[in-house]
Amino acid sequence: KELVLALYDYQEKSPREVTMKKGDILTLLNSTNKDWWKVEVNGRQGAVPAAYVKKL
């Protein structure tokens, strides 16, 4: 499985998103959308802005 690093804090704004903190390591589930990537963090799945994460 592919991992990404959170470059910034992000507070979810809808139920389809997830909150992450700078430095979090997230499991990347889907990166086909260039703006929003689906990730899993702390057992929750949701979208985060692609510009806020970097593939490891």
Rank of each mutant, 00 (worst) to 15 (best):
K1F: 13
K1T: 13
K1M: 13
K1N: 11
K1G: 11
E2G: 11
E2F: 11
E2Q: 14
E2Y: 11
E2L: 12
E2P: 11
L3Q: 11
L3C: 14
L3G: 03
L3K: 11
L3F: 14
L3E: 08
L3D: 03
L3M: 11
L3I: 08
L3A: 07
L3Y: 15
V4F: 06
V4H: 02
V4L: 12
V4K: 01
V4A: 13
V4R: 01
V4S: 03
V4M: 05
V4Q: 01
V4I: 07
V4P: 00
V4C: 14
L5H: 04
L5V: 15
L5E: 12
L5K: 07
L5G: 02
L5W: 07
L5N: 01
L5I: 15
L5Q: 11
L5S: 04
A6V: 10
A6M: 04
A6K: 00
A6Q: 00
L7C: 12
L7N: 02
L7G: 01
L7R: 04
L7T: 04
L7A: 04
Y8W: 10
Y8M: 12
Y8S: 08
Y8F: 13
Y8R: 15
Y8Q: 13
Y8C: 15
Y8L: 11
Y8V: 13
D9W: 04
D9G: 05
D9S: 08
D9K: 02
D9L: 02
D9A: 06
Y10K: 00
Y10L: 01
Y10I: 00
Y10T: 00
Y10V: 01
Q11N: 14
Q11P: 06
Q11L: 13
Q11K: 12
Q11E: 14
Q11H: 13
E12V: 07
E12A: 15
E12N: 08
E12H: 09
E12C: 14
K13N: 11
K13F: 06
K13E: 08
S14N: 13
S14L: 07
S14Y: 06
P15W: 10
P15R: 09
P15D: 13
P15H: 11
P15K: 10
P15E: 12
P15Y: 10
P15L: 10
P15T: 10
R16D: 15
R16Q: 14
R16V: 12
R16Y: 14
R16P: 06
R16G: 15
E17D: 05
E17Y: 07
E17H: 07
E17F: 06
E17T: 08
E17M: 06
E17C: 07
E17I: 04
V18Y: 04
V18A: 05
V18Q: 03
V18D: 01
V18M: 11
V18I: 14
V18W: 07
T19C: 05
T19S: 15
T19L: 03
T19A: 07
T19H: 04
T19W: 04
M20C: 07
M20H: 00
M20D: 00
M20E: 00
M20S: 00
M20W: 02
K21H: 11
K21V: 09
K21W: 08
K21L: 08
K21F: 10
K22R: 12
K22E: 07
K22F: 05
K22V: 08
K22H: 07
K22A: 13
G23Q: 02
G23S: 02
G23T: 01
G23Y: 04
G23M: 02
D24T: 07
D24R: 01
D24F: 04
D24Y: 04
D24A: 07
D24P: 00
D24N: 07
I25T: 06
I25D: 00
I25P: 00
I25F: 06
I25A: 02
L26Q: 01
L26M: 14
L26A: 09
L26I: 08
L26S: 01
L26P: 00
T27N: 08
T27M: 12
T27C: 13
T27A: 09
T27E: 10
T27G: 06
T27H: 10
L28A: 02
L28E: 01
L28M: 03
L28W: 01
L28Y: 02
L29P: 00
L29I: 14
L29E: 03
L29S: 03
L29C: 07
L29T: 06
L29A: 03
N30E: 15
N30T: 08
N30P: 04
N30K: 07
N30M: 08
N30Y: 07
S31P: 07
S31A: 12
S31D: 15
S31N: 09
S31I: 09
S31F: 07
T32P: 04
T32A: 12
T32V: 10
T32R: 10
T32G: 11
T32L: 11
T32S: 14
N33F: 07
N33M: 09
N33P: 06
N33C: 12
N33Y: 07
N33R: 09
N33A: 09
N33S: 11
K34N: 11
D35C: 13
D35M: 13
D35S: 10
D35V: 13
W36P: 01
W36F: 08
W36Q: 03
W36K: 02
W36L: 04
W36V: 04
W37P: 02
W37F: 08
W37C: 04
W37L: 06
W37I: 07
W37Y: 09
W37D: 01
W37K: 00
W37V: 09
K38N: 13
K38Y: 15
K38Q: 15
K38P: 02
V39K: 00
V39C: 03
V39S: 00
V39M: 00
V39L: 03
V39R: 00
V39F: 00
V39Y: 00
V39D: 00
E40V: 07
E40H: 04
E40C: 11
E40Q: 08
E40D: 09
V41D: 03
V41M: 13
V41T: 11
V41A: 12
V41G: 08
V41S: 13
V41L: 15
V41E: 02
N42D: 13
N42M: 09
N42C: 12
N42W: 06
N42G: 12
G43M: 05
G43S: 06
G43W: 03
G43A: 05
G43H: 06
R44T: 07
R44K: 12
R44D: 03
R44I: 08
R44E: 06
R44N: 06
R44Q: 08
R44V: 10
R44S: 06
Q45K: 10
Q45G: 07
Q45R: 11
Q45P: 07
Q45S: 12
Q45Y: 09
Q45I: 15
G46S: 03
G46A: 06
G46C: 05
A47T: 14
A47G: 08
A47P: 02
A47Q: 14
A47Y: 15
A47M: 15
A47R: 15
V48A: 03
V48E: 01
V48R: 01
V48G: 02
V48I: 09
P49Y: 03
P49L: 05
P49Q: 02
P49K: 04
P49I: 04
P49V: 02
P49F: 03
P49S: 01
P49D: 03
A50G: 05
A50L: 02
A50W: 00
A50P: 09
A51E: 13
A51T: 10
A51I: 11
A51Q: 12
Y52Q: 07
Y52F: 13
Y52H: 09
Y52S: 14
Y52T: 10
Y52G: 09
V53W: 01
V53N: 02
V53Q: 01
V53K: 02
V53L: 15
V53P: 03
V53S: 00
K54V: 14
K54W: 07
K54I: 14
K54N: 06
K54L: 12
K54T: 13
K55C: 12
K55D: 05
K55M: 12
K55E: 08
K55T: 09
K55I: 14
K55Y: 11
L56N: 03
L56F: 10
L56S: 03
L56Q: 05
L56I: 14
L56W: 08
L56G: 03
L56P: 03
L56D: 02
L56R: 02
